[in-house]
Design a protein around this nucleic acid. Sequence first.
DNA 1: ATACGACTTAAACCTTGGTTCAAGTCAACA
DNA 2: TGTTGACTTGAACCAAGGTTTAAGTCGTAT
Lengths: 127, 127
Amino acid sequence: MKYCSIGEAASKLNIPESTIRYYEKKGLLPLMERDGAGRRLFSEDQMALLETVMRLKNTLMPISKIKQYVDWVIEGSSTNDRRLDMMTKHKQAVLAQIALMTESLIGIDVKIARYTKRKHEEKEGLE
Amino acid sequence: MKYCSIGEAASKLNIPESTIRYYEKKGLLPLMERDGAGRRLFSEDQMALLETVMRLKNTLMPISKIKQYVDWVIEGSSTNDRRLDMMTKHKQAVLAQIALMTESLIGIDVKIARYTKRKHEEKEGLE
DNA sequence: ATACGACTTAAACCTTGGTTCAAGTCAACA
DNA sequence: TGTTGACTTGAACCAAGGTTTAAGTCGTAT
């Protein structure tokens, strides 16, 4: 088992160290190990958890909900069904968000087309 | 030309009236017309602008940037190229965001599969 | 020995994106 | 006439998600 420092963890996942400390304070990274000088040691399991946290964050899950998930992970296998339920619902929410963005992009594309046309035709128009 | 009230605008776009007032205060809805009693009147052009604002918001553009866009719309056709540039870059950013979410979803799907398996097999395991 | 870089903490600070509140105006209806 | 309902305002309030700061501790390279 290899351990890494907060600096290594931060640059691997391309996030500020301050964010990792903030996440730990918020309870998203429980049971962190430390070396003799009090520095955080990230085991491979902790790195995997941090990656999971980042995946949830990247899909716009709020911190409070990520914390609920992590709490269930710590609580153990009795929470398996609740985690399954949360992840399933979250997936649906993410798909809905992607659908919303995709549809909104269509309207944006219309503008891009219009602006492009005007650019080449030297036309005018509102918006 | 039909006009609609803030209440009608809000329920058409399914957002709170308070949000529309907030957007106006932030400069996202300039040149708003009013009736004799000071109530906002949304023309079809204003509704179209509000819809554009909502599309940008739905694709996670910050208020400050939406305001820049609206300012350019008001400034007129001399800003056509800047608007084209902004929308083109925004589209790329949105596609990147969708890609990030889609990729993160893969990791989430792995968990869903694992939790589903455990549910039926009564297995144990961390995370 | 000392100075540097990487780390630690708690607390203060910040921006974003609204929501809520209190007090008031107005039109229409009973 | 008075009382709803839909609107107005500015200011206060709020939560989320970090970031920054100040002061300190190590281990190592010079």
